[in-house]
Computed example of a mutant assay.
Amino acid sequence: MTDDEAPFWETTPLAQMSREQWESLCDGCGRCCLHKLREDETDEVLFTDVACRLLDTKTCLCTDYAHRQRRVQDCISLTPEMLANIDWLPPTCGYILVRDGEPLPWWHPLVSGTHETVHEAGISVSGRVISEREAGMLEDHVIDWPGEAPRHAFRRTRPPRRT
């Protein structure tokens, strides 16, 4: 890609992306792999700090991505068509940003060139969640941060490093 060419996520409609392009929109934050509850009276999504049993809580990678849907009954494989009706993806999600015509921030691996920046920017769940195998009652683990964007999350450029 030359400097004057726009990246594929700015020019290719979601429904026309190749599988590789679509998969690369995932920033690897792990927030979508956290268990969520839905409030009966308000229909509000309540986030928890409880991760799917297949999520490596340090790297934020699925330990069996190829077979996840066979092993986890309610695991969802996102499609462009589904994005219009999903209200539980975080505001920092690459799929949501591209869907809404927003730029990908500096920490997104497609922009930074490395998956480490999603952790560096405080977007990932790394070190902040527990596995469902250890959690107990989900109601005891309701938290806000997975549904929120950290301060400076949508910056286009990396903030200066503190020394």
Rank of each mutant, 00 (worst) to 15 (best):
A15C: 12
L37H: 09
Q69F: 12
E116H: 14
T117H: 11
I123G: 10
M17P: 15
W9D: 05
P90N: 02
D43V: 00
L89P: 14
W9E: 04
Y95W: 14
T163H: 15
I96C: 06
W107A: 08
T157V: 07
W106F: 11
V118D: 01
D43Y: 11
E10K: 11
L83M: 03
C32D: 13
F8G: 06
H67I: 00
S124P: 14
T11E: 09
P13S: 10
M17V: 09
E139Q: 08
H152V: 02
D40L: 00
W106T: 06
L14G: 14
A121W: 06
G94I: 03
P109I: 00
G94W: 09
C32N: 11
G127M: 02
L34P: 15
R38N: 01
V111E: 03
C93M: 05
Q69M: 10
Q16M: 12
A66L: 00
R161P: 08
K58N: 09
T11K: 11
T117W: 09
H115I: 06
V50I: 08
N85Y: 14
C60R: 08
D100H: 11
L110M: 01
R128S: 05
E44T: 05
L37T: 04
H119Y: 03
E81G: 13
P150A: 02
Y95R: 04
R53Y: 15
C26M: 00
Y95H: 14
E10I: 00
S112D: 06
E102P: 08
D64R: 01
L14W: 15
A149I: 02
C29W: 05
A149Y: 07
A6Y: 14
L110C: 02
S77N: 06
D43N: 08
R161F: 13
S126K: 05
Q69K: 12
S112Q: 02
T11S: 12
Q69A: 13
L104Q: 03
G113S: 03
T57C: 13
A153G: 14
T114L: 05
A15L: 10
R70K: 13
R71E: 15
C29E: 02
L138M: 07
G127Y: 13
E44W: 06
L54Y: 15
M137V: 10
D4P: 08
R38P: 04
R156M: 07
C93D: 12
R71F: 15
P80F: 08
L89W: 11
T11F: 07
I143Q: 07
I143L: 07
